[in-house]
Amino acid sequence: MKIRPIISYAVATYVFVLPSFLVNFLGLSPLQSFLIISIPYGGRLVGSILFARFGHTLSLTEFYKLMLGASASLSLLSALLISFPAEITIRLIVGVVFGLMSSMAMYEAMEINDRKVIGGTLGGWAIGWTLAGITSMILKSWTLAISTGALSILLLPLISRGDMKIRKTKAGIPSPLGVLTYLLSFVPAFSLSLAPYFLEINGYSWDIVLISYVMAIPMYFVLPALSRKINPGVLTVIVAGIASISGVLFFDGYIYFLLPFTMAGLGLNSITPVIARRYGINSTNSGIAINSAALGGVVYPVIPSMMDYSDFSIIVGASTFAISSLVVDTKKKATQVTS
């Protein structure tokens, strides 16, 4: 079922990112808040490794049911057991569940072998993030908002339609260039985690971030469709160029360039799998590659504390456009996805 990996990635993202919008309600120290937000990233990598090692032991439907149940249970526990030791433990497990669910979703999407499904699956991040932001704005309470993650259990009938046996293969360690491809494509997403604070200190509401995420969602489907008409390497260079220039301008204070930065920057993720295939990334090891690259999300947002945002904007622009260096000969080597 083509929509299932998209739903799975969106649900995993929703449960994963929602606490980052609400952590201030817990009254924790800055260090404790940072740990609540960052510790799940380590769990993501663990989960993706577990999927690569043991994923074949269950069918996809069985795995989805198990992970949806885990997400719902962890959301309820997090909403009720409000203490730092409990939350840090739950958040680590949430990261593991995200690693499993995202790996499952990418496995199914890449086995379906449809660029729009693969791009849309990665678009689950933008969908989940947007829904989490809206929830936090409406339910200004840790307990109420976090408990909404338990509603994911209602998706069981939809997730259970159709099935796919997970092949037992030796996943292997993703190539460094494969991981780097995803890492560079995630730079805009890493940078956007700073956008709410940057807007606030410049006197703007962070609502514009939500609007830009909503506008970015269609790009996860439009760009993969375009990659059938335009060489994926050329398309990557164009999209990375737009994201790079608009990212520099946004962090230089031209606020409304946030919209093209978000649309092009997040949309870049949707064509990355086509490029990553050139470096040996496949359905089995894509989860490890993605969640290894995502560790940059812990480090990257710390950079502005060491410099002015005007200097940071140059780093954003340069590192976003750097993915262009990985697309040489893509036409010959990275077009194994069919439709």
Rank of each mutant, 00 (worst) to 15 (best):
M137W: 11
T148L: 15
M101H: 01
E108W: 05
T57R: 14
W129G: 00
G47I: 12
R161K: 15
T121V: 01
T143E: 12
K165C: 00
G69I: 07
L76N: 05
L131P: 04
T143D: 06
T89V: 11
G172I: 13
R91L: 06
M101C: 02
T143H: 07
I153W: 14
I90W: 07
L139W: 13
A79K: 10
S136H: 14
V97D: 07
L74P: 00
I49K: 13
I134P: 03
S75D: 02
G172P: 12
G149K: 11
A150K: 11
L184Q: 07
S185R: 09
A126T: 13
L92G: 15
G55S: 08
T121R: 01
S102C: 04
S147W: 12
E111Q: 11
M101F: 01
L68R: 01
R161A: 09
L156M: 12
L183Q: 09
I93H: 07
E111K: 14
L139E: 09
K116S: 15
P157F: 06
A52E: 13
S152I: 11
L156E: 02
G99Y: 08
K116Q: 14
I93W: 06
S75K: 09
L76Y: 08
S83C: 09
L156Y: 14
W125F: 09
M104I: 11
K168F: 04
M106S: 02
G133E: 01
L80I: 10
A105E: 07
F98G: 04
H56N: 03
W142F: 11
F84N: 13
E111W: 02
Y182A: 12
A150D: 12
I134G: 00
L60G: 03
L68S: 03
V97F: 02
M67A: 06
K168H: 07
G178H: 15
R161F: 07
L158E: 05
L155D: 02
L183F: 15
M110P: 00
G123S: 03
S147G: 06
Y107A: 00
L154V: 12
I118E: 03
S185M: 10
A72K: 05
F98Y: 13
L177D: 15
I134V: 13
S175L: 15
A72E: 14
I159W: 01
